[in-house]
């Protein structure tokens, strides 16, 4: 096989002289904003591919293409992970609307239960605040030594137009849970929290309990009646 040399000559490296990495005097910048968007820059990038592929490169790719394709699991659900005392809990990310700095909760006269804490003013709107440990009836345990209440937050959640706010001790991040790594939580008559906690999984050596968002919102609705 003959190797035909590239007939394209690389254009002037304008992005370093008059572009974003130069003095930004290029008249096209007014329209393109950044060299990344400019056809000249894009075409120059394509010129990089007009090089001969080395034998080593072609051999490596032959090995990669011979292996079964690595696929990402598709049945995943994105969960937001947070902490309440010693409990690490997870709730579907899509129900979270905002994570906010803690702000005062104003009790509602004659309407306060253990679950409903009161009202919180958020951007000119009053939202109902609830206590997740009370709703789940989590057993409160003394904090493990070294664990401090470091970054308390308030989470605004919404499902089908119903909005609620609840305090958390710490937001820990997001996690993509695959269905095969989730285990069912054995239901325990003596532990009422298992009503809402349907599955659990291990994350960084800790057991995380997932709260079922359907059951959570149904439970919140009941708590108002």
């Amino acid at each position: 096989m003959t190797v035909t040399p590239s007939t394209l000559t690389p254009p002037e490296i304008c992005w370093r002289s008059i572009g974003i990495w130069g003095d930004a005097s290029c008249p096209k910048l007014a329209e393109e904003i950044h060299c990344h968007n400019c056809p000249v820059y894009i075409q120059s990038g394509r010129h990089q591919l007009e090089q001969t592929a080395s034998d080593e490169y072609r051999r490596q790719w032959a090995e990669i293409m011979a292996r079964p394709k690595e696929t990402q699991p598709t049945d995943t659900v994105s969960l937001a992970i947070f902490r309440l005392g010693n409990h690490v809990l997870a709730l579907r990310t899509s129900v979270f609307k905002r994570i906010l700095e803690p702000r005062p909760i104003h009790p509602i006269p004659h309407r306060n239960t253990n679950v409903v804490l009161g009202l919180v003013a958020l951007q000119g709107e009053l939202q109902l605040a609830f206590s997740l440990p009370e709703l789940l009836r989590l057993k409160s345990e003394p904090l493990v030594a070294g664990r401090k209440r470091i970054l308390p937050r308030m989470a605004l959640i919404e499902k089908q137009g119903e909005r609620w706010v609840f305090p958390v001790d710490e937001m820990l991040g997001l996690h993509l849970l695959t269905s095969d790594s989730a285990m069912a939580v054995p239901s325990d008559e003596n532990d009422p929290s298992t009503t809402y906690l349907t599955t659990m999984f291990e994350l960084d050596g800790r057991i995380v309990n997932r709260i079922d968002d359907e059951l959570l919102f149904a439970g919140l609705k009941r708590s108002l009646q």
Partner: peptide, 10 residues
């Protein structure tokens, strides 16, 4: 036509 050259873009 001619054979495709062994370039990265091929």
């Amino acid at each position: 036509q001619s054979a495709c050259p062994p370039l990265l873009s091929t």
